[in-house]
């Protein structure tokens, strides 16, 4: 009983500390902000309202704008797709090199794990900005930056999947003299593929957003067009509205597609488990 009481008072103290942190944190954030919370709160819908009203006013032009910016949207999606594929390929290799029982060089497992941690830790924007400086703007810096981060993120998730994979096929293949690549391709990949694909699809959703954001800092695609459209200012927000709509629609569509396919994957697997 006394323990429960002590625990409750601990919980209360923790809660109070948390509330204090949140309140003082918001105070600090507000003091360091250009505009205060209460000054801006009534303006929060001014911008969306302006964009929407202009979009409605020029509703006939929206399809034309959408057609204009469609190639940029395709570029953004291509950046995300190519980066996810590259990241998944490298992530697969790295994850196998970082899993006990599968690694080609077991001694280097910690090294590969740290490499994956580091790749995950570097935000995309850092690599993108450096590459934009070296290569000039365009989709490739964004693709490389996202692929780099994706390799780290997927590599970690894949290696967690690998831990649960059976090593028997690998041993069997080793006994008939298969080399490492063959063992991995034939022994491991068929076991883990559904989980890999599911994680890669989730990553693809994240990467579409990331690729739009990187466009905003100069890496091409729909984000770059959005930045330009915004800078033209009031009176020409109809173009921004078209881009917003397209971005929103594509994010929702790919989210739904990927979640539908992921449930199919897990659902399909359950069925095969039931039937012997």
């Amino acid at each position: 009983m006394s323990m429960a009481q002590r625990k409750r008072s601990y919980g209360l103290v923790l809660l109070l500390v948390f509330v204090a942190l949140m309140v003082s944190g918001f105070q600090t954030a507000q003091n360091r902000n250009a505009g205060g919370f209460w000054d801006g709160i009534h303006r929060i819908f001014d911008f969306p309202a302006g964009v929407i009203s202009e979009a409605i006013e020029k509703i006939t032009e929206l399809p034309i704008h959408m057609a204009t910016y469609f190639p940029a949207l395709i570029e953004t999606i291509n950046i995300a797709a190519a980066a996810t594929l590259i990241g998944a390929i490298f992530g697969t290799v790295f994850s196998m090199l970082a899993t006990r029982g599968m690694a080609k060089w077991p001694r280097l497992i910690p090294v590969f794990r740290r490499i994956l941690d580091l790749m995950r830790a570097i935000p995309e924007i850092v690599i993108a900005l450096i590459l934009i400086f070296v290569m000039g703007g365009g989709p490739v810096p964004a693709m490389i930056a996202i692929a780099f981060h994706t390799t780290g993120a997927l590599g970690k998730m894949f290696s967690e999947v690998n831990e649960n994979a059976s090593l028997k096929p690998v041993d069997g293949l080793a006994s008939v003299g298969a080399n490492w690549t063959q063992r991995m391709f034939v022994g491991v990949v068929p076991q883990v593929a559904p989980n890999y694909i599911s994680y890669a699809l989730m990553r693809f959703e994240i990467n579409i957003r990331a690729s739009a954001i990187l466009g905003f800092v100069g890496a091409g695609g729909i984000g770059y067009e959005l930045k330009n459209a915004m800078s033209w200012g009031q009176g020409r927000y109809d173009q921004a509205a078209a881009i917003f709509l397209m971005l929103f629609a594509s994010i929702v569509v790919f989210d739904q597609l990927s979640s539908w396919y992921r449930t199919q994957l897990t659902h399909g697997r359950k069925q095969t488990e039931v039937t012997p």
Binding site: R32, L247, D255
Partner: peptide, 26 residues
Amino acid sequence: FDFIRGVDALIFTIMLSRAFGPGPMT
């Protein structure tokens, strides 16, 4: 929830920085 997730951080960031200006609170 779906709507908020679809609008995405980029668009919220643009919208909020119009209202509150640059800074950590935004």
